[in-house]
């Protein structure tokens, strides 16, 4: 990798002051599992690296009656193992405990998981001048695209967002607190992600001189679950993920406030509006969950090699809904 100057601030303000107002020359370093890969491939060539691991206050989990707050520097392993988080948000903890292997979870952080670059093999290849590296075209559109997006309408670049925490968090109604040169701002995590189209874009809406401080999740005792369809049981990104959350839905109560968010099917976490509408105010039954799954896949425009993901969406949504409602996991029999 290209050599760089290394900074290790001890407060978030110091870290933000070291950032620049354009991407590329200065990068934030948390767990390193994504950034160093990109540096070794010369896809990222920062001349300055600002480590946030010296900011002690950036890591930590607090859960009270109203909300949970998770610092951006919190390790994935700590999220997976946290008893209070698991009690309220099994979807989040299951998603965290299935990321990579133990080494990745001991290194990777919440902020890094949300802000990591995409896994498109054309983007990750130093010698392929794709849109996100200043090139003129997306090579996945008519190339090897079996792991790419199926909700492709209006997208110039057909990556999938690589975060598995994001769909779970968005379904739970999470917000994100951000620090920039003008101070703090907050936004819904649902509005945090972005469909990039050129070298000046990232997969999120942070400015180059901003950083994620923490994520907040309202505590509402809603049923929630995340289901991933994978090629391998461990150490892989999901092919498709469905994260759901709703009020009621158990013991004969109707499900209301239904949230269904898909991962790994679009350049951003994909909010399945039609499926949410289809299930709103209904019982969680096998038939209703199946119908919601079909609705979730509506409008997909797959590429040449990934139409298989449509069926996976239908199944993932159905299974996530049944899991959240505490119903029998017929696929585990």
């Amino acid at each position: 990798m290209k050599n760089f100057t290394y900074f290790r601030p001890t407060t978030a303000e110091q870290a933000v002051a070291l950032l620049e107002n354009r991407w590329g020359n200065t990068e934030l370093l948390a767990g390193g599992t994504d950034l160093h890969d990109l540096q070794k491939e010369y896809v990222a060539q920062p001349s300055r690296v600002v480590s946030v691991t010296g900011i002690g206050a950036l890591a930590g989990i607090r859960v009270d009656e109203k909300q949970a707050t998770i610092g951006a520097g919190t390790k994935l392993a700590a999220i997976a193992e946290h008893a209070d988080l698991r009690r309220h948000f099994p979807s989040l903890c299951e998603a965290a405990s299935d990321i990579g292997g133990p080494q990745i979870r001991n290194m990777g952080t919440l902020g890094g998981n949300l802000c990591q670059r995409n896994r498109c093999w054309y983007f990750r290849d130093e010698h392929t001048p794709c849109l996100l590296k200043g090139g003129q075209r997306c090579y996945a559109l008519d190339g090897e695209n079996k792991y790419h997006a199926i909700f492709t309408q209006g997208r110039q670049c057909v990556i999938v967002n690589p975060s598995t925490l994001a769909p779970a968090l968005i379904a739970l109604g999470a917000g994100v607190n951000i620090l920039g040169p003008k101070g703090r701002r907050s936004t819904d995590l649902a509005k945090f992600f972005f469909s990039p189209a050129n070298a000046n874009d990232r997969e999120h809406t942070l400015a180059a001189n901003e950083m994620v401080l923490e994520v907040t999740i309202p505590v509402r005792n809603w049923a929630n679950a995340s289901y991933e369809v994978r090629q391998k049981l461990s150490y892989d990104w999901p092919l498709v993920q469905a994260a759901v959350a709703f009020q009621g839905g158990r013991n004969g109560a109707k499900a209301t406030g239904v949230r269904i968010v898909l991962g790994h099917v679009a350049p951003t976490p994909h909010i399945a509006e039609a499926a949410m509408k289809a299930l709103e105010g209904r019982d969680i039954t096998d038939a209703n969950a199946t119908a919601a799954g079909r609705a979730a896949a509506e409008g997909a425009k797959p590429l040449s090699q990934n139409a298989y993901k449509i069926r996976l969406v239908e199944v993932a949504v159905k299974r996530a809904l049944l899991m959240a409602a505490g119903m029998k996991r017929y696929w585990e029999m």
Partner: peptide
Amino acid sequence: LGTIPTGASA
């Protein structure tokens, strides 16, 4: 908003 120190150190 939270635990991340801002005012004092800055």
